[in-house]
Design a protein around this nucleic acid. Structure first.
Lengths: 231, 231
DNA sequence: CAATCTATCAAACGTTCGTTTAGTTTTAAC
DNA sequence: GTTAAAACTAAACGAACGTTTGATAGATTG
């Protein structure tokens, strides 16, 4: 029987949709392009996923569900290994990074689509995309923030949250468009190499998290509009 | 005469387009929505800007042209003030941040649209958007990288480039969706306050840039796929 | 074998998209 | 006041969009 070893249609749609959403964003990816690549009929999408939005939710759940679980599992394991002691900032940074990087490496066959997917969805303007992602990440976020606070008890809470945002912003940016970064650094940085990304982020953000609290009142004068050219 | 003190149509289109692109991205923003808000006829867009892509290029040029100029000017001024000495990392970080933050503050009347515009465009999937932005930022990028290298001569070139990417990734992320960050931090972080953003980024990234070079070979074992659950 | 349910398909639905055209009004120059 | 260029518009273009419909096979069940 021909096509017996073919992947089933539902999976083919999810694969193609993942690539398309990662490449073009939610609004930019069209169902017709997705079904063409998945080699299924257009109506099949609606049979399995009800709508374009439902398709996106399924793409999310397939990737970010296990990702979230691995995040929580890995953190729990690290805490178990520490036997009640606090984890180092390096360990926490590594724990935050390894799951998404592993996820990216796992799908190496298909042009790092889900790597870009993570980055793209984090910055997608679509409100439903944002809401879906926020709910997915809420628990993981809280868990890591708590652990960072334990590791850096003297760092004020707002400073910690800011740096946490900076960190995920950098992660999203790197994952969002690896090709762009490789191009603009003229090949010096290769975001497709998880070992490199992990080592570089650990070095930069371990120091960043450990830095003394910010001094807000030093810097305001430069921001007033009476210098240089108004825009 | 009615409408005498009205802003001219070309500007109204640019304003509305800026808001729309910032809010929905290039693909998600429709010309019909833009002309409705700008209160002009649909064809007027084509009279002034030739196409949707041309409109986007004009929106870019209006904001990022002066921004680029202010970046270069401010850096030149700082170097002049230093009289041949090297700038501190803090000074460079501040110089990179002040122009976009000032730009964001300048348009406070209109819901920080151009603040979000910067962040949105940096992460927009559209290839033309990317190419436009890359060309705009090329010289600024080179200038700041050179100055950072002068300030941190012992940091290997790749490490410097990585951290430079992390930095702009964090900036883009913060600028991209201030409301989202304020929400997920439950009001602890307010990205609409330039003083806060500047102080926090300076504290985090001055330390990040100054950190010792990354040690790539320490960390590879965790990334191999034979642990925990494959996804 | 009839009945039923699942999976799949071609074709079309109505809408919205970016874009163009052909014509009208306004402005400015001589 | 005539003329020509610039500014603006209503209406439509074809294409692409997300979505629905009705029918057709194949498998499953009584």
């Amino acid at each position: 029987m021909p096509g017996a070893k073919q992947i089933d249609r539902k999976t083919r749609i999810l694969d193609a949709a993942e690539r398309a959403f990662a490449e073009y964003g939610f609004a930019g990816a069209s169902l017709r392009h997705i079904v063409l690549e998945a080699q299924v009929n257009l109506a099949t999408v609606y049979y399995y996923f009800e709508s374009k939005e439902g398709l996106m939710a399924a793409v999310f759940e397939r990737r970010f569900g296990p990702l979230r679980q691995e995040h929580l599992d890995l953190l729990a394991r690290r805490k178990r290994e520490a036997k009640g002691g606090v984890l180092s900032v390096e360990q926490i940074v590594e724990t935050m990074l390894v799951p998404p990087l592993r996820l990216a490496g796992a799908a190496s066959t298909k042009s790092h689509a889900n790597m870009r997917l993570i980055g793209r969805m984090v910055t997608d303007p679509n409100p439903q995309t944002q809401e879906l992602l926020r709910r997915q990440h809420e628990r993981v976020r809280a868990a890591f923030l708590e652990e960072l606070h334990r590791s850096l008890p003297d760092l004020p809470w707002p400073d910690l949250q800011w740096r946490f945002e900076f960190f995920w912003g950098a992660v999203a940016f790197i994952l969002c468009n690896p090709g762009k970064i490789e191009k603009s650094t003229r090949g010096v940085c290769n975001p497709a190499d998880p070992r490199l990304v992990l080592a570089q982020m650990k070095a930069c953000f371990a120091a960043g998290f450990r830095a003394p609290a910010a001094a807000v009142n030093e810097v305001s004068f430069l921001l007033s509009a009476n210098e240089t050219v108004a825009v």
